[in-house]
């Protein structure tokens, strides 16, 4: 990989990181609510903008990362190494940040770190790449950050995926926190969110 082939990072690093993080903070504080990305950086394929923004905003040399084989193109690997310096780990259960396509969520999520009873914050954050929101499988969400209840349907999240996420929620206060990263937006599903069948 040469410098020319490397995808650039944020064009205005300090500002872009600040506004991107606020978007992520808003997403995590209101589970299920889809937030438009405030910046659209160049993406190393096959990462979409959501995944790229999350990587550039949250990863650095103090974090561990695991990227699914299906996403780990040379350009993605180089992008993460060059712009963040995050430490790649071989075992997905050791990673603080895990990037995977939504289709791999059902199989992957049960393998991730859920934290310990004394340090539940040491759980992994899963970044599941999606094509957007408004998919076929909708679920009703409730819990902290949700005024009453709300609906969510990331494209590509199937019933099996929702089942795994519901089991994850049952582990609270342990469990994995998930960002659904789309090409122009993100939404979050922390472990604290309860998942129930859609009323419809």
């Amino acid at each position: 990989m040469t410098v020319q082939e490397l995808t650039p990072g944020f064009s205005d690093p300090v500002r872009d990181a600040a506004v991107s993080f606020r978007c992520l903070l808003n997403a995590m504080s209101r589970p299920g609510l889809v937030r438009a990305l405030p910046v659209q950086p160049d993406c190393p394929a096959p990462f979409n903008a959501g995944a790229t923004v999350i990587a550039l905003s949250l990863l650095d040399a103090d974090t561990t990362v695991w990227v699914a084989d299906s996403l780990a193109s040379p350009v993605v690997t180089a992008h993460i190494a060059f712009h963040t310096g995050a430490k790649p780990v071989a075992t997905v259960g050791d990673a603080a940040f895990v990037f995977a396509p939504i289709a791999e969520l059902p199989e992957l999520l049960p393998q991730l770190s859920i934290g310990t009873p004394e340090y539940p914050d040491r759980a992994a954050t899963l970044i599941a790449l999606v094509d957007g929101f408004g998919g076929a499988e909708e679920r009703r969400l409730s819990g902290p950050g949700i005024d009453g209840n709300t609906e969510m349907a990331p494209i590509g999240l199937n019933a099996a995926g929702w089942d795994v996420l519901a089991m994850n929620a049952g582990l609270f206060p342990l469990g994995v926190d998930t960002f659904f990263a789309g090409p122009s937006s993100v939404a979050a599903l922390p472990r604290s969110t309860r998942i129930s069948p859609n009323a419809a």
Partner: peptide
């Protein structure tokens, strides 16, 4: 500095995911 901000930002996201729990 940006590294310190990222460290705090990561802690904030975990704090939101486990409301009321004190993240070191």
């Amino acid at each position: 500095d940006e590294q310190t901000k990222r460290m705090i930002r990561r802690a904030l996201l975990k704090a939101l995911a486990v409301p009321g729990y004190q993240v070191p």
